[in-house]
Design a protein around this nucleic acid. Structure first.
Length: 416
DNA sequence: CTTCCACGGGAACACTGGGGTG
DNA sequence: CACCCCAGTGTTCCCGTGGAAG
């Protein structure tokens, strides 16, 4: 009987120790904006200096913020915006900061509608002509005397589809009687203004701010600050934070990565019922994050892209060559479509899908000229094969292809 | 210099999901 | 209700082009 009893105690001990890692893990999520941003006081000051004129009732210059992912652009913009609204309230000046992520809201229509809705105008999701949305937006903004600041995060995503949106926004002030509008653009592409209408370019880039990547030491400081709040006392081995920082510094100083890494390390340690987070947990976390990312991306791919990816995968698994060409992939793709009764897209479209997969970092596609034998993309997988494969076969529409074999030689391929 | 193949830009088109109007 | 208008998205069609092997 004593044996069972000690087993019982063991259960509770385990449960207790698994509670012992986190104090508040929300602090490690990148949606969390801390009250203090280490190593960014310079940028905060510059941005505040530009925006302060809003408190005097003037129109602040438009600002463009550049910097790679995870360099604190969004955090700084949100932080300064919050502070500005606060001071505005104190002084009785109407300052409104609207944060928009252009990856989600990526067309002129949606952008204008979104802003209009912030000022309590009802604009339907779709259906109206754009000029009508524009005047709704303008009227709602101009109803009162105020300064509105629109933060356009990932503004480069907007340039492709809706650069007239930027044009209209940047000259809306000439149509306004009481209110004023200024823009803050956030981009991680330094060269995105090249594709911009020159008029927009000059008005948007009145002020420019560059966020350099963090180095390993700075990332360490950031992690320290957050870890303080996130973890219980002394559950982190000494190595953990420097290691996370080092990994993230390799990825061009991405603080977001570092925070994810730290959080996932903690979660892994917790699940393993360890009492402290150690180096091996960090290494496991590193691997897990990459696989999770790939699986998530693959899972949410449209069916056609999944088919394309699968054909590349199978050809690569055949493994007589490391890389393959678009033509080969297309043949296999066509066969598979026929097999499962899916619509067959043109090769033109498939090149686009392959490029998209390349952008997502799932494939590697390089254009090479093979002289006499023309020009093609050399494609190879750049993620773990097995996890990708199982993620693909989660889709019931691809299930019938589990036993599908790619033809190994060019001869067989010709016989389709 | 020619030749070859797919790349990739651009126009055109079809379709969707919504709104307003008579 | 039927009908047309609109933005947005995904696709096809057409075609000029790059660049090393032959």
């Amino acid at each position: 009987m004593t044996g069972t009893e000690s087993f019982q105690v063991g259960i509770f001990e385990n449960l207790m120790s698994s509670q012992q890692i986190f104090e508040n893990r929300e602090v490690l999520r990148h949606t969390y904006t801390p009250d203090y941003l280490p190593h960014r006081s310079e940028q905060i000051n510059s941005l505040a200096t530009v925006l302060v004129s809003a408190l005097r009732g003037d129109t602040p210059s438009n600002v463009l913020i550049y910097g790679k992912t995870g360099t604190g652009k969004t955090a700084v913009a949100k932080y300064v915006g919050k502070e500005l609204e606060k001071s505005g309230d104190l002084r009785g000046v109407q300052c409104k900061v609207i944060y928009i992520n252009c990856e989600v809201i990526d067309t002129q229509y949606r952008l204008l509608a979104h802003i209009a809705r912030h000022f309590d105008k009802d604009v339907p999701m779709t259906g109206w002509p754009t000029d009508q949305v524009y005047s709704e937006f303008r009227d709602s903004l101009d109803r009162e005397k105020r300064v509105a600041i629109v933060v356009l995060d990932e503004i480069d995503k907007l340039v492709r589809k809706g650069d007239d949106a930027l044009y209209n926004l940047s000259r809306v002030n000439t149509d306004l009687k009481k209110a004023r509008l200024s823009l803050i653009g956030i981009s991680n592409d330094l060269k995105f203004t090249e594709f911009l209408d020159p008029r927009v370019k000059s008005s948007l880039g009145e002020e420019e701010l560059v966020f350099p990547p963090y180095d390993a030491n700075q990332i360490r400081d950031i992690l320290m600050q957050r870890a303080e709040m996130a973890f219980k006392k002394s559950v982190l081995e000494e190595m953990v934070i420097p290691l996370c920082a080092a990994f993230a510094a390799q990825e061009h100083g991405d603080a977001r990565r570092a925070l994810d890494l730290l959080r996932v390390s903690g979660e892994i340690a917790e699940r393993a019922k360890a009492s402290v987070v150690g180096e091996r947990h960090v290494r496991q976390a590193q691997e897990k994050i990459e696989i999770d990312r790939v699986v998530e991306v693959v899972r949410t791919l449209p069916t056609q892209s999944k088919l394309v990816l699968l054909s590349v995968l199978l050809l690569n698994n055949g493994a007589d060559t490391e890389s393959l060409t678009t033509g080969e992939a297309y043949h296999v793709y066509r066969q598979m479509c026929r097999e499962i009764g899916a619509e067959v897209l043109t090769q033109r479209r498939i090149t686009d899908l392959i490029s998209e997969l390349d952008m997502l970092g799932i494939l590697n596609a390089v254009v090479v000229s093979k002289g006499r034998y023309g020009r093609t993309k050399e494609i190879s997988m750049s993620v773990p094969l097995e996890s990708t494969k199982s993620a693909l076969f989660e889709d019931y529409r691809l299930k019938p292809l589990v036993d599908f074999r790619a033809p190994q030689t060019a001869m067989q391929m010709k016989l389709y």
